[in-house]
């Protein structure tokens, strides 16, 4: 796959931006890395909802496409 993987790093797409993170990072680890722990967020991984209860066990993989959303003002 990639040189990042060889160096123990992988690349994710998070909300449309590339992000390099350590390999074997969990979804919970990513949320912590983004300082979103405890915030009201929802996460989609490769088009599928990843329930909050599975954040600690779900390891992210190179090339994962993630969407992390919040509620904002709107009509």
């Amino acid at each position: 796959m990639s040189t990042f993987a060889a160096r123990g790093e992988i690349t994710l797409s998070v909300n449309g931006s590339e992000m390099r993170v350590p390999a074997n990072l969990t979804a919970a680890g990513l949320i912590e890395h983004m300082a979103l722990t405890g915030k009201r967020v929802a996460l989609e991984r490769n088009g599928e909802i990843l329930p909050k209860s599975r954040f600690p066990e779900q390891t992210l993989e190179h090339g994962d496409q993630l969407e992390i959303v919040v509620a904002v003002g709107g009509g």
Partner: peptide, 17 residues
Amino acid sequence: VAIRRSNIGQNPNEPNL
């Protein structure tokens, strides 16, 4: 309410709606 991507790299302590 609307649903939008959380801001990356911005103030994480921004108040939540």
